[in-house]
Design a protein around this nucleic acid. Structure first.
Length: 877
RNA sequence: GGGAGCUUAGCUCAGUUGGUUUAGAGCAUCUGCCUUACAAGCAGAGGGUCACUAGUUCGAAUCUAGUAGUUCCCACCA
């Protein structure tokens, strides 16, 4: 068979993904094995795959595949999130393009469009994940608005309400005037903006010519001012105590109040108070019993109560009010100023603090046990520095605004009665019964009950995810939740530690009494080479699908993982994928080499081959043991690097070169079989990282039955490592390297065989190792000439044994002397350092015995080495 | 304003409780090779006062304090 010199992943990857899914190999059912569970952080149903998903899901797949191969019943539950704000915004836009305004639709009509749109465009991302090789149990795919998951959300709302942990109240919330909904504190991002600070003067009532000047960044809110506040100890303003001021333009009389909240140094030390439009002003308003005037409509335009500029957008109004204030003689000056402004994470609209009636969830009691679970390491964070962040937030947790003024989501199960009371119930029937019992005098009919128009925050369903995907809320005794929960690991980004991670922990403890996962692995942010966050607007994010087409999914997985230790940002560079692709190609070519050999079943196994096979197996053992340790600590990049070197340096560059039969000669059957065993082992250990090419090779190496798969094989276990053999082989490789260096320096082509003199007693000879040297360095004769044997050529010292390569005529004595002198200088310097330590009495007395012994050994070795070099020098000079 | 982390080779990072040859890896670089698996390759080489300063110690990349730079989180003073 003729195989291409380059590995082509495209056909191979589709073939094996189909094979795996056709045989339902990702599917899991509870059985007697221990469970290993991961629930996917559900991406937005309307989302498309970006580099962050690639990293996150590659890690999950590696963990799941490894668990599957190490005796666990592994399940990876996929699914999507309904993402209220983002999805509703997309649907609204889609309708707008069709000429339909959301305002003209009923709730049901809108939801019909939304569902249609979700069915059509939703879940693309899950299809894209298949391309990556994600071994999700697709039969278990969930959506946060599936009937069963929705029911769980309602159950939880009712339960919390009945426990007194959900309440309704007027609060200052972060209003998104574009999405027309409140958003939680966590959904507000602050950015620094270049803006202006306006100084405006207010006349003191009854004192013509007397003014107080305030400084503000939002002059349009002057129209809603209901007080001016100064510091009680500020002497500049003491004389105005008890007086009132006149708001410019609207000519409203407002009180002057005094509160320590005011910074005397800022601006003029006088602060205008607009309780309806600033959280701090609101708090002062409550404290000082101030009037509240809301001058904005929900969409951010000025309302009738503003009296001026009615109907104008808030930013237009900010400009338009300047000339009005100037005309009125109230504008004192305008300065440049940098301040921070809150933006809605979803719509990038400037947040408007707004008073409104919202639903809140009390967090205090929920947070306490969830904080403990992380602090006492029931749940482990990787890296653990995030414990700090977590603790700080949990200790200062504020109540959670859970209502959103949207239609797409879980509707709040509160039903209002004609008497303005409400009942919370699972459905209208239950609500009706409760209401009838509570208010028999109302003679209610079901039609009198009006359900709350709002939906819940998306995270109010996400926080149940590990429970609800196994139906653990509605049906807590079902075998699935008992088997798969708590999940094993959560792989997520640190920016949703509060939104999601913290709340899942609360939910798990509240409704199941146990933590939802044991380990949390925080991935870093994917950035470009210039350390910039990857974003659509910068256009610096490569298209993952294109990348996979170019380098293969295995190549991209390799690239993502190789440079992303837990929690560290990933500076993504296509060259990493290139390295991954090259690695695939390397394995492919190793396979081509092995396939090309003729086998003589009766052939004798050469001694260098025998020892190489033993050594290679030991190396695999050693790396397996290290990898196990790396996995325990979630150091995936280190595990992968170790395997990369194992395959490339040990297997390809060394092992295969040793066992390679002479040109056009067959290989003995024993060796061939050993090689296949080793190759197969390597496909196993690499499979979690690079599932496609390893599956392809595993099938190609030996006959397989339909339905067999590498992904279902058992991972080789590290056995006892033969340290002695590994060390001996390492020395052998060093000797080979030295010979090759001599070749390189003397320009001796590899095809010209060399002789090697070992300046030691023949009794020290190791025929196997010498045969390996002979093979890899093209040495025709290894001769033990005794310690005093003549040197006539290039020499080197390895482990205090001198080696020389006879090279009549090719040796420049001066060069040799120079090199030896350099070696000597190094050895002497080294010895000096050691002697300095050993001559220090305090070191010898205080350091542990083994450390002192090591230093003595170093001394002896160095002295021996110096002796050999000097001897050699004396012969040359 | 408060807190946390980071700073080791050109780049990205390892370096476990201070001691295992005067610090390791991958990539990049340089040199020589189209050697019959692979030039997406082979062989070899160079490259670091471990940010700076002071301290603790027989001994510091590792511990302590300070300085500088950098990243992130929290708060949101108009």
């Amino acid at each position: 068979m003729e195989l291409a010199t380059k590995y082509d992943p495209t056909v191979v990857e589709d073939k094996w993904y189909k094979y795996w899914t056709d045989h339902r190999m990702f599917h899991s059912e509870p059985d007697n094995r221990p469970a290993y569970t991961i629930v996917i952080p559900p991406p937005n149903v309307t989302g498309v795959l970006h580099m962050g998903h690639m990293l996150n899901n590659t890690i999950q797949d590696v963990l799941i595949r490894r668990a599957r191969m190490t005796g666990f019943n592994a399940v990876w539950v996929p699914g999507t999130d309904h993402a209220s704000i983002a999805t509703e915004a997309k649907v609204v836009n889609m309708l707008k393009e069709k000429g339909i305004d959301k305002k003209d639709l009923t709730r049901d009509e809108f939801l019909k469009y939304a569902w249609e749109w979700k069915e059509k465009h939703g879940g693309i991302i899950l299809k894209q994940l298949r391309k990556l090789g994600a071994s999700c149990d697709w039969d278990r795919t969930k959506f946060t608005m599936d009937a069963d998951l929705s029911e769980a959300v309602i159950d939880i709302f009712v339960d919390l309400y009945n426990k007194g942990k959900i309440y309704r109240g007027v609060r200052m919330v972060n209003w998104d005037p574009k999405a027309l909904t409140a958003v939680s504190d966590e959904e507000v991002v602050y950015k620094e903006l270049q803006s202006k600070l306006y100084y405006v003067r207010y006349q003191i009532e009854g004192e013509p010519g007397e003014y107080i000047t305030i400084a503000t960044t939002r002059p349009e809110t002057i129209l809603g001012d209901t007080a001016i506040c100064m510091h009680p100890d500020d002497e500049r303003y003491a004389k105005y105590k008890g007086k009132r001021a006149i708001v410019p333009l609207v000519n409203r009389s407002i009180p002057l109040i005094y509160d320590e909240y005011v910074e005397r140094e800022f601006g003029t030390g006088a602060l205008k108070i607009t309780p309806a439009h600033d959280i701090n002003d609101y708090n002062l308003g409550i404290k000082h019993h101030l009037e509240t005037i809301n001058i904005f409509n929900d969409n951010g335009t000025l309302s009738e109560s503003a009296q001026f500029l009615v109907g104008m957008d808030r930013f237009e109004a900010r400009k338009a009010i300047i000339p009005l204030l100037e005309e009125a003689g109230s504008m004192v000056k305008i300065e440049d100023y940098v301040n921070k402004v809150g933006f809605s994470e979803r719509t990038n609209e400037v947040i408007e603090p707004k008073l409104s009636l919202q639903w809140f969830c009390k967090m205090g009691e929920l947070a306490k046990p969830a904080l403990d679970a992380v602090m006492n390491n029931d749940i482990k964070f990787y890296p653990d520095k995030f414990k700090n962040t977590y603790a700080h937030w949990m200790e200062n947790v504020k109540d959670w605004c859970i209502s959103r003024q949207l239609w797409w989501g879980h509707r709040i199960p509160a039903f209002y009665l004609p008497n303005h009371e409400f009942v919370v119930a699972h459905n209208v029937d239950e609500a009706f019964n409760i209401a009838q019992q509570k208010y028999p005098e109302l003679n209610l009919t079901k039609e009198d009950l009006k359900q709350d128009e709002d939906v819940m925050d998306t995270w109010f369903s996400s926080w149940l995810w590990p429970l609800s995907v196994f139906d653990g809320i509605r049906n807590p005794e079902n075998p699935e939740i008992k088997y798969y929960y708590p999940t094993s690991a959560l792989i997520t980004a640190p920016d949703i530690i509060f939104f999601w991670v913290a709340r899942m922990i609360m939910a798990g403890l509240e409704w199941r009494g146990t933590i939802p996962f044991k380990d949390v692995y925080f991935t870093g942010t994917v950035r470009d080479k210039l350390h910039r966050k990857m974003s659509k607007s910068l256009g610096n994010s490569p298209d993952p699908i294109m990348l996979m087409e170019k380098y293969g999914a295995d190549g991209v997985r390799f690239g993502m993982l190789l440079s992303s230790p837990a929690g560290n940002d990933l500076l993504f560079d296509e060259s990493l994928c290139e390295q991954g692709r090259n690695f695939s190609n390397k394995m492919w070519n190793a396979f081509r080499l092995v396939m090309g050999w003729d086998v003589d079943a009766n052939g004798e196994q050469p001694i260098h081959t025998k020892v190489a096979v033993e050594w290679m197996n030991q190396r695999i053992n050693e790396v397996l043991a290290d990898a196990e340790e790396d996995f325990k600590r979630y150091r995936l990049s280190e595990a992968l690097m170790a395997l990369y070197k194992l395959v490339w340096d040990d297997f390809c560059s060394c092992f295969l070169e040793v066992v390679k039969p002479p040109y056009q000669k067959p290989m003995d059957g024993k060796t061939y079989n050993d090689i296949l065993d080793i190759f197969e082992k390597l496909t196993k250990v690499l499979h979690p990282f690079m599932p496609f090419i390893t599956e392809e090779l595993w099938h190609a190496l030996r006959e397989r039955q339909e339905g067999e798969s590498l992904m279902l094989c058992e991972m080789p276990k590290p056995e006892n490592v033969n340290r002695e053999l590994l060390d001996r082989f390492a020395v052998t490789r060093n000797v080979i390297e030295q010979i090759r260096r001599v070749r390189s320096e003397k320009n001796i082509a590899n095809k010209n065989a060399l002789k090697l003199h070992v300046h030691a007693d023949a009794a020290m000879a190791n025929a196997e190792m010498d045969a390996v040297i002979a093979k890899l360095a093209n040495v025709e004769l290894v001769e033990y000439v005794g310690e005093q044997g003549e040197v006539n050529g290039a020499s080197f010292i390895e482990q205090n044994v001198k080696y020389s390569i006879p090279l009549e005529g090719l040796i420049n004595a001066e060069e040799e002397i120079k090199k030896l002198q350099a070696d000597l200088k190094y050895a002497e310097g080294f010895l000096q350092g050691v002697l300095k330590k050993l001559s220090n009495e305090r070191f010898v007395n205080n350091a542990p015995q083994n450390v002192v012994d090591i230093e003595r050994k170093k001394q002896a070795d160095a002295e021996e080495k110096i002796r050999i070099i000097k001897e050699q020098l004396s012969k040359l000079q």
